[in-house]
């Protein structure tokens, strides 16, 4: 029995990974793509409620159709960290930290796992570059279709988080740039503090609607405004 279970060692395994380009080439017919909160019609709500957003306690925005890449590797491997930095222009963040540049961000998920978020149309290019730069024992998975980012900002954003997660979101425990994967309502979220009053949550696609309903309810007492996603660069392929 035991000899049957002995794994075959394949040194070139990473070279054989099928890397899929998930978007059509420019010039081809655009493909319909729907973000996990497409059905909520947030953009229409944002236009309708534009006048109220100044008085709202919480401003919500879905940062949709971004490229999400999960990178796994050994953080103690100097070469691994250097290669990631070379491609992304960002230091590999340490425990519970994140780093961001103009067009890319990277979040610490676990001691050997990071989440890289880039504009949707760059996911394939970044993945290809990372595969060329990295060597040895590593993994990269494009999980763009599996999750989305909901950002919360405004003076009452923290109050909403206090109602929704058991984690301590006070300044002394949650400085800007910190990332925490924790319980959010009855599901989970990767919560990042992006600024003094702004937070980002990475939620699973199948739980996005639940989070959206939860947030509408918990934001009601503070006043909720929805904002259009200005950073979405993949408009071309989300025709209705």
């Amino acid at each position: 029995m035991s000899d049957v279970l002995t794994p075959e060692v394949d040194i070139d395994a990473t070279a054989k990974v099928a890397v899929m380009k998930q978007l059509p080439e420019p010039g081809l017919r655009p493909v319909r793509a729907e973000s996990p909160l497409h059905h909520a019609q947030l953009d229409e709500m944002a236009v309708a409620a534009a006048a109220d957003s100044a008085s709202a306690g919480v401003v919500l925005c879905e940062q949709k159709l971004r490229g999400h890449l999960v990178i796994r590797g050994d953080s103690k491997d100097r070469q691994f960290a250097l290669s990631v930095t070379k491609v992304l222009g960002l230091e590999l963040p340490g425990k519970l930290q994140s780093a961001r540049a103009k067009d890319a961000s990277i979040r610490w998920i676990s001691p050997d796992e990071w989440l890289v978020v880039v504009p949707g149309d760059q996911a394939f290019a970044v993945e290809t570059q990372l595969r060329e730069a990295l060597d040895g024992h590593f993994a990269i998975v494009n999980v763009s279709g599996g999750q989305t980012i909901i950002s919360l900002s405004g003076p009452s954003a923290r109050d909403v988080l206090m109602k929704s997660t058991p984690y301590d979101v006070h300044d002394r425990n949650f400085p800007i740039g910190k990332v925490v994967t924790t319980v959010f309502a009855k599901t989970q979220a990767v919560i990042t503090r992006a600024g003094e009053e702004s937070w980002e949550m990475v939620v699973r696609r199948s739980f996005a609607d639940y989070c959206w309903l939860w947030l509408q309810d918990s934001c009601a007492e503070f006043g909720l405004a929805v904002q259009q996603d200005k950073g979405n660069k993949t408009m071309v392929f989300q025709t209705g």
């Binding site: 425990k95 519970l96 676990s110 001691p111 058991p166 984690y167 924790t182 319980v183």
Partner: peptide
């Protein structure tokens, strides 16, 4: 010991 932080049992 991996996150090096205290967390609620719920997690």
């Amino acid at each position: 010991p991996h996150c090096e932080e205290h967390r609620e049992e719920e997690e």
